[in-house]
Simulated scan of single mutants.
Amino acid sequence: MSDAPTRSLLLVHAHPDDESITTGGTIAHYVREGVEVTVLTCLLGEEGEVIGPEWAELVADRADQLGGYRIKELSTALHELGVAGPRFLVAPGRWRDSGMAGTPAAANPRAFVNADPAEAIAGILAVIRSVRPQVVVCYDEVGGYGHPDHIQVHRFTTAAVEAAGPDAPAKLYWTVTDHDALNAGLARIGAVPHGWRRPAQGELPTFPSESVTTVLDVSGVMDAKLAALRAHATQVTVAPSGAEFALSNNIAQPVLAEEHYVLARGQLGPVGDDGLEHDLFAGL
């Protein structure tokens, strides 16, 4: 029996489906490597749009039951990725999806943008002290694409890591979309399904490639990543090819076989010939 300490990874995400879209391959990869992986989801995604008519009555301005249904989707996706769960910040539904900036949803007193920072930070800190991760993943300062809830996750997770003291993880990463990798993926897309369209130049948000520090090859777990994406059927459609997906806007995006990160706290580990880390636990 090995005396090596168990490796532990914590990923903090805003809504159900975020974990699969941005880090699904990472989650499945490390589960298969024997890492203890915890996915902390902050909200239920009540303000999300719905693809197709089947579940259209669940949305916020109708039955307002989408959040509960998305717990089911999240549970299925996590199972496909090999993670127990779901696990929510403080409690399921403690705060509500804020919607995009400037929408009426943000005025709701229960919206995550109106959360008491002390309570939210304490909730994340409690999870850090419970699972003792060496590595934590959240979003960058703009939440990837500017969603207010993603920005809150960045702020609160960063604050919790800084407050953890001796329990602080060795590394904090941001999950990002590498500009060059996305464009290369878009260039590989052939015909798109009926009703979809290709993104306009610069329409999809990206992160500067020269600022990316870490890339993880997830080609070996694409089966799990695709299954997790398909589990979020109210939010995500996977093309029959399995090489593209689209959200409710029907804009085609590539399903990348690499996932990209920026090291925000801690020491960069050994890098490859490309100057990038290839393991979130590199150097630990």
Rank of each mutant, 00 (worst) to 15 (best):
K225A: 00
E162F: 08
D64S: 15
A160Q: 02
E119K: 03
G165L: 06
L81H: 02
P133L: 08
R94P: 04
V212P: 00
T158Q: 08
T23P: 00
P270V: 07
A91G: 10
T158V: 12
A160V: 05
Q267G: 09
V127Q: 02
G190K: 13
L247S: 09
R198K: 14
A107D: 15
L186V: 11
V236H: 01
D274S: 11
F88M: 12
L10S: 02
G242A: 11
V131D: 03
P16F: 04
N114I: 06
A122T: 08
N249I: 09
A77Q: 02
L256G: 01
S2T: 13
L89Y: 04
P208I: 05
V90M: 13
A111Q: 08
A60L: 08
R265K: 15
A84N: 15
D149V: 03
P240S: 07
A106E: 12
D140H: 04
A4P: 03
R62V: 08
G266C: 03
A126H: 14
V90N: 06
V39F: 04
A63R: 07
V131Y: 05
R96N: 11
V39I: 13
E203D: 14
T6C: 15
Y139F: 15
R188H: 15
V35E: 01
L81D: 01
H29M: 12
H147T: 03
A60C: 04
P117F: 06
R230Q: 13
A28D: 00
R70H: 05
G283D: 07
I21N: 00
P254Q: 09
G82Q: 12
H179W: 11
G146K: 08
R132S: 13
R155I: 13
R87A: 11
H154Y: 14
H13V: 14
S209L: 09
A91Y: 10
A28F: 00
V137Y: 02
L276M: 14
A56Q: 04
I21F: 04
T26H: 02
Q65N: 10
A60E: 03
D167S: 14
I27P: 00
Q253N: 10
L263F: 10
A106F: 04
L11Q: 08
T214I: 04
H179S: 12
A77W: 00
L74G: 02
A168C: 06
V218E: 00
H29D: 09
T6M: 13
W174L: 06
P133A: 05
V142S: 15
L10N: 02
E210M: 13
Q253L: 10
M100R: 15
G165R: 03
P117M: 09
V37D: 01
E259D: 10
